[in-house]
Design a protein around this nucleic acid. Sequence first.
DNA 1: AATCTCAAAAATATCGATATTAATTGACAT
DNA 2: ATGTCAATTAATATCGATATTTTTGAGATT
Lengths: 221, 221
Amino acid sequence: MNMNDDMSGKESSATHGAYMTLRDMILTGELPAGQKLKIEQLRGLLKTGASPVREALSLLTSDMLVERIDQRGFRAAPANKANFEEILELRCTLEDLALRKSIAAATPQWEEQLILTHHRMRKSVGQDIKVFEEAHKTFHMALLANSGSPMLERYCAQLYDLNIRYRNLAAGGSKYQSRDIAAEHEEILEAAVQYNADLACTCLLKHYRLTGEYLAREMDA
Amino acid sequence: MNMNDDMSGKESSATHGAYMTLRDMILTGELPAGQKLKIEQLRGLLKTGASPVREALSLLTSDMLVERIDQRGFRAAPANKANFEEILELRCTLEDLALRKSIAAATPQWEEQLILTHHRMRKSVGQDIKVFEEAHKTFHMALLANSGSPMLERYCAQLYDLNIRYRNLAAGGSKYQSRDIAAEHEEILEAAVQYNADLACTCLLKHYRLTGEYLAREMDA
DNA sequence: AATCTCAAAAATATCGATATTAATTGACAT
DNA sequence: ATGTCAATTAATATCGATATTTTTGAGATT
């Protein structure tokens, strides 16, 4: 009759579930970069049919997390330093652009969202890492959310995820919190709320590049 | 036994065929913006099963040509002036970036590709419009092909296609050739081959914006 | 030893049928 | 007339079973 675990009852469909799970497994590195993704294997893992798996993989292609080779199945997107640096650089360029646009078009609602998402991020710092990660992304996306260009924001979100993936792949452990991340976020927030685009962007890019350098070092191993 | 029309025998699979056909139909406007894309209907049209159709639609989602609403099927991506202008602007930003990178890293091979693709584009001017369109895209992508950033190039290609779509949607007829397109292309080529990034980008963006303004006018109708 | 061939095994792609879910219709009450 | 709700219809999502294609590997040939 009914289906299994749909905890809070939002979107439920085998495809959507498979999509979310696979996405998470690739982002966390549970499915290693470059790995062949066999339908049967995943079918067993996700306890669903072949069609949803296949469709989920097709969807993950959009996110550049999965590669599809016609007639030869799917594989987790490969990862290497060059790709990582490409992502970092593109991300800096596009987020700089988006943040400037957001600030240029600043509205009270947007600012309030910044304050809120930042607050929630701070509150989530002790909790499960997944919760913090979610809040962290939400805050960063809120910074760009007023750019007036949905596609630009989409690209930024995509690059954000790809970057997170590298963080997970490189730093198995997560003791990378040597820097004062919280202070960096506050700097960005403050500059944004004061409509200081140059400063906000400087802080934002510094925030990304510092993490980037740390990860690049890890990846040499 | 064997399947139908695979002319030259490259990639053959029902999914790939459906993908190409649907893509073309959406780009040309044969499938109007916003239209519901029912599986059964397309299944008949493409003379194939439901699975390939479904998978092709999922793939087209990556290209932002199809929207997928969970549990509610697919539809051709909507089109409106705001979206068009967003695409145009993003495209100008990203292509400017990519062209500058390409020129900065110029190599003899890259230059020769420019010359070649430009030549082929000129040669294809009398032929079937599809042939010219193909050559035109190839030339423009060749300009960016040396950027060293595959993802950036991918975004540019995507935006290129979306722009073409609007050109097809807006200008049913194609008597928009009032400008001297050929001269514009030559200007761009010349500047690129001389490593004059500023000039090349100026010409390129002018090329796009002129077309953009023309189309924007058409769209007011 | 290296390479080639070809059949067996494995995996993907596709089909046809069914279960689920959303959209529509129309009777009934307001 | 208009709004509500249940029954009906239509469409999507999913399954299980094949057909196709790719990969593998044992044996034959140089």
